[in-house]
Design a protein around this nucleic acid. Structure first.
Lengths: 378, 378
DNA sequence: TTGTACGCGTTATCAC
DNA sequence: GTGATAACGCGTACAA
């Protein structure tokens, strides 16, 4: 019944007897192509892979059939044979955060350029979810993972990461000894505080992420170092989850202080906290830089639109993402190259820069308060 | 040397002779577990799947072994047997866009809740890239796809989509007859323009996306309808790619017009265009709502921080994303249910709402100009 | 230059 | 309640 497929046309059979086209309701496989071209599936496989010892003629015919029949390689089957798939996992706390969104974009671009796929996992900074996401990801046998670890990763999750090529992004966790591409966060907040000090501010507050986060520690340290260098001992510091709400709350508490002790300047230790702080200030009807100078963290496009622009610590987002991908990909290749596991862990640290805009200003007499006239040492 | 791990505990052999643990350098498989427990791998598979006719005792032992040996199911193998993987592709123009970032977040959450994986593809609104991304995605044999199509999808890409469960998001393309979850864009810009008219504005400009995009058409139509309803025939309309730069350019051109004919109000037809417009206005030193009233599109958190807040068309982002995922997942299930292909294409349209803030104000005499005193019909 | 045979890890089917 | 076996699509060692 089923018409045997024809042959002889210069290149195989442009007409595909529909009966042959697919075996069941399935996709086209190299076997289908082989049958159709009356050659072995091995040849088809090799032709597609652009193997050496295949006649040009055969290659041509195969390629044509591939197009005509709409053949799409089956990644699963391919992965079964080899070890790992061409998937790279990206595990981040939050895609809505402009910083990570940018990271996702860059990583996606780079992977696409290498014919790899991006599997996205969002942890919401929840260690449990982080664990679940990684476990789920592992089922795909990814070639590698780019991860921004939560504050306290589950030991189980750390263990799983050990058998996997991975790069830590932005944050490091001590227990995870792996490649890492970081930002010199210390330098960031140091510069921020330094700038405010240079503006004459002395009562400078800091709102930052928990010290459970490596970024939280670094940024806090940078801030404190700047103040210490200026011989300022006391400061108003609030640490908590890097979410807008925390900053909002902190702001309302801080601003409830007596004017004479209330900070005249503010350093933010994360992008989300900056957003929250701005919301809080606005809600409290506190104007910047008139009432308070502030330096944000990270530099989304809209920072230049708020007020007369937000002075901020600009992060090398693109660089970080690009570098992370590069490190991961090169490790994947090195694997193939020297067969063994070249266990050299790369740690790269990129520098932020201070972007001066209109949210910071010189300390005014009014801000300084009646007894606030202090020496203005550099 | 290596201390033999202990044994004898109530169940079987918890001790795993390392020689048995993995066959080569591979991952643990159900076969390893089977060997270890001295049962058949079939039983292991069934135990893991929570199959019916397996003794509780066996299930318990298997589960324990799974944990101890760190077994992780191989999605590829699973996919090989069945038809499709548990991956869902999300194809969007841009993750950095707050709107799509939010979509990605919601979709990721929903999928995670259903033990599915999110594969992210970014097209940058480039049809060629869209095609490549879909092709690459197809290799993973995804269970389905959620896609925001580009303006002019390649026929080839449309063809591939036909054999795939999919949901169109926000934008529809005529040639893609599939499920779609959309926003009533027409209502959005209609309300925006209506509001400005109510404020007394008559010279209202519109900057929107190309009419090649369904969203572009709808939004333009809504704007025009509002003006037509107010018997206003002429208007300043600029259509182009929905990118900040386009809006920036348009702004500088529009604002170069003679003051008497220059628009006193502006409706934006996309989130990115709104960003660009704000940048353009600021660069041109045009203040809002003093010099011009404007209504944005979409409502990222920062809109309320700019000036006295941006009046904007608030989109039901979460709803749209949630619904799209729900539609897709339910179709996946219905597949399983009624075996056949229930070819009922769902189209859902959700409504935006106008969020009034400080970027719009009543038309002033100054804006209206010397001869600008016109009837103020509702 | 091309073809044959096997295995990757799972699950469905059938047998006991 | 459990086990043996086949099959999914692909790539490669081995053979011709």
């Amino acid at each position: 019944m089923a018409a045997r497929s024809t042959r002889k046309h210069s290149l195989g059979k442009p007409a595909l007897p529909s009966s042959l086209r697919r075996r069941r309701g399935q996709d086209v496989t190299i076997l289908d192509i082989a049958k159709c071209l009356d050659i072995s599936h091995t040849t088809v496989s090799r032709a597609i892979a652009g193997h050496e010892h295949i006649s040009e003629e055969t290659k041509r015919r195969v390629k044509q059939a591939v197009k005509q029949m709409g053949y799409v390689p089956n990644a699963s089957a391919r992965t079964m044979r080899g070890q790992r798939s061409s998937v790279v996992g990206l595990i981040i706390p939050d895609v809505q955060n402009d910083f990570y969104a940018t990271v996702a974009k860059i990583v996606a671009d780079n992977l696409a350029a290498h014919a790899m796929q991006l599997m996205l996992s969002v942890t919401e900074d929840d260690p449990d979810r982080e664990l679940r996401e990684l476990r789920a990801l592992l089922e795909a046998r990814p070639a590698g993972v780019i991860i921004v670890p939560t504050a306290s990763p589950k030991p189980q999750m750390i263990a799983m990461l050990r058998d996997l090529k991975s790069v830590q992004l932005v944050r490091t966790h001590a227990k995870i000894t792996k490649n890492a591409v970081l930002i010199d966060d210390r330098a960031g907040t140091y510069a921020a505080a330094r700038h405010l000090l240079a503006c004459g501010h002395r009562r400078i507050a800091y709102i930052g992420g928990t010290t459970e986060l490596s970024t939280g520690r670094e940024r806090l340290a940078g801030f404190q170092a700047a103040l210490a260098d200026a011989k300022i001992t006391s400061s108003n510091i609030a640490l908590g989850p890097p979410r807008p709400d925390f900053a909002r709350t902190s702001i309302s508490m801080t601003m409830a202080m007596a004017p004479s002790s209330r900070p005249t300047a503010l350093v933010l230790g994360s992008a989300e906290l900056t957003l929250g702080a701005l919301q809080g200030l606005r809600a409290a009807n506190i104007d910047w830089p008139r009432d308070i100078s502030l330096v944000g963290y990270h530099d989304p496009a809209w920072f230049e639109l708020v007020g007369s622009g937000i002075t901020t610590v600009r992060l090398p987002v693109q660089d970080v993402a690009q570098t992370a991908t590069r490190v991961l990909l090169s490790e994947l290749n090195s694997e193939r190259a020297n067969g063994g596991h070249a266990k050299e862990h790369t740690t790269i640290r990129l520098s932020p820069s201070l972007m001066l805009r209109g949210s910071t200003a010189a300390l005014t007499e009014e801000q300084a308060g009646p007894m606030g006239r202090m020496a203005q040492s550099t």
